[in-house]
Design a protein around this nucleic acid. Structure first.
Length: 271
DNA sequence: ATGGGCACCTGGCTGC
DNA sequence: TGCAGCCAGGTGCCCA
């Protein structure tokens, strides 16, 4: 579920509670996540201090004294800060108990999330090593986009969602960015003109920034650290708005399936 | 190398 | 009311 804005909202939410805190105990109540949580992980991080709370793509990174915890929220995951005495609820899989008496509690009904610990250079971890630039990085620009897409026949929306081109853009924000750039999701990547590439890079950044400002998008179950929803759903132009009037030109928004995912666009605003 | 499809899992909604 | 069927913010992997 969570795309970059939701993960970034979570990062900012836990940072004030986590930074500088020592991990008293890490309890894995359900190790069957996307990959089984390593048995030795809890023992490895016990007593270590959280030196930084970072993010790379959709991964949350808790930098500890001697390594990094790598947490992915999957499709339905969320992280809350609660007093350690708070009773667990369904799908509360991991507790990171801090020396403040609070715990970072990971909840994930679908269990597509993951938790790893690495003592090595985190950027070289197999999950992170092949990731493309961050959308706000200067290296993600129109030249780069043109170069990558030049020979690609794949639909531009699928390319946007490919973490080897740019990270953090999932199904919601790919549709939204393409709307803002005036480009139909079905267009072959190689048909994107330079002017369109300029617009698309700008649109990706604008929509992600706006979504972060709104605390992310809650469609079904995403909540932030305080259990509150994100408000960007009110500002979506096309996502899950099929049949409704385009907010710009009033044409009915259309919907179709693309790569086993739903895509939405305005047939008038997008060419 | 590229692109397409599947798998992993639970819960909520729709329609019979 | 019950239940089958379908859908959902991700992404690694296997195959052609």
């Amino acid at each position: 579920m969570p795309e970059l804005p939701e993960v970034e909202t979570t990062r900012r939410g836990i940072e004030p509670f986590a930074l500088g805190r020592k991990i008293v105990r890490l309890a894995v109540h359900e190790p069957r996540l996307r990959w089984p949580v390593a048995k030795k992980l809890a023992h490895e991080v016990r007593g270590l201090r959280i030196r930084a709370v970072g993010r790379r793509a959709k991964y949350l990174l808790l930098e500890l004294d001697t390594g990094t915890l790598i947490l992915h929220l999957g499709m339905s995951g969320s992280l809350c800060v609660v007093p350690a005495t708070t009773p667990r609820r369904a799908h509360d899989h991991v507790d990171i108990v801090l020396d403040s008496g609070q715990t970072l509690r990971f909840n994930d009904p679908r269990r597509f999330g993951s938790l790893h610990y690495t003592r090595g250079v985190v950027a070289e971890h197999p999950l992170l090593a092949k990731l493309a630039p961050e959308p706000f990085d200067a290296s993600f620009n129109a030249d780069y986009l043109c170069r990558i897409s030049r020979k690609r026949r794949v639909a531009v929306k699928l390319l946007l969602m490919n973490s080897q081109l740019v990270v953090g853009v999932g199904n919601i924000y790919a549709s939204e960015a393409l709307f803002r750039a005036g480009i139909r999701p079905k267009r072959q990547a190689r048909s994107i003109t330079r002017a369109e590439a300029v617009r698309l890079v700008g649109a990706v950044r604008t929509v992600l920034r706006a979504a972060i400002r709104a605390g992310g998008t809650t469609l079904r179950d995403y909540v932030d650290v305080d259990g509150a929803p994100g408000y960007f759903s009110q500002k979506l132009f096309v996502y899950e708005r099929d049949g409704q009037a385009c907010r710009v030109c009033a044409t009915a928004i259309r919907h179709f399936n693309q790569g086993q995912r739903s895509s939405y666009y305005c047939p008038t605003c997008q060419k």
